[in-house]
Amino acid sequence: MNKLLVSPSPHVHSPLSTQRLMLDVVIALLPATVVSVLFYGWRELMLVAVSIVACVGLEWLITRFLLKRKSTIADLSAVVTGLLLALNVPPTCPWWVIVIGAIFAVGVAKMTFGGLGQNTFNPAIAARVFLLVSFPAYMTDWTIPAGFIHTDAVSGATLLGKYAEGGIEAIQGTDYLHTLLFNIGGSAGEISAIALLAGFVYLLCRRVIKPWITLSIWGTVAVAGLLFWLINPGQYPDPVFCLLTGGVLLGSIFMATDYVTSPMSDWGGVVFGVGIGLLTVLIRYFGAYPEGVSFAILIMNAFVPLINKAFHQKKYGRA
């Protein structure tokens, strides 16, 4: 007989692992990815592949040669970052811009802070904002390339872009059912609200995330949108428009809920979500950019340590 193992309790472990959680996020992102490939064609698939390979490869290189420690790519967090990055840029984005984004995401936003679990900012969001500021032309080129469903390339602007340019008249008559199913234009992952919501439901069912952050973002965006709309319906769009357009869904479901860069407690998550929602609406209506979700998430990321200090889970017997 071999030597007996001895350790402190517990002697069992749940099947949960970092790898499994990350895999769940990837699975939850699949519907959105499939829809974007259907709409934008092989090139979109190529972008996703380039992004993932760049992120994973870079993490491997950094752990192996720079930090000289065991590689951490098996936890799949780099795959999630790569996939999110690809879904967060326009489908027309040149591949090398994505590679630069990947270098920023993994190299700067993640590994310089100490790798998974140590980063203050969500790598994919940080990279998206970095690209948006560095390559505004590529990042706001909303030409819709030919895909499997649309066979001709058309130039189009996002609904939010149209609104920023032409005011409320430019978006009049928007068909919401249409935006719910395939809101063409915008970042690659933002096409279908349904696909993103399917991912959200999957994450909730697998108990990967809790709904509070996402719901509080939606709630805040809706309420703030409603207020503005009630004040002046001639100038501001209605709350449904606010919710369904731009990166609200993608950001609130997949980026704001990133474990590392969101608060730990439920109430902290609500505060975090409300902050993101408010900032998003403010940036949209009063900022220089038509869309503000990524900025809002990035700004609120910085507040997470403070929120964690202020909000804690309810303790037993300490009422």
């Binding site: 949960l16 970092t18 959680l21 951490t72 936890d75 967090s77 100490g114 790798g115 998974l116 679990g117 140590q118 809790k210 474990y259 590392v260 730990m264 407690s265 889970q313 309810k314 303790k315 037993y316 017997g317 300490r318």
Partner: peptide, 17 residues
């Protein structure tokens, strides 16, 4: 491996720690 700050331990703790 590294703590990913998922907070699942805090959710599981029956004493709310």
């Amino acid at each position: 491996s590294a703590c990913i700050r998922c907070g699942k331990c805090a959710d599981a703790c029956p004493m709310g720690l």
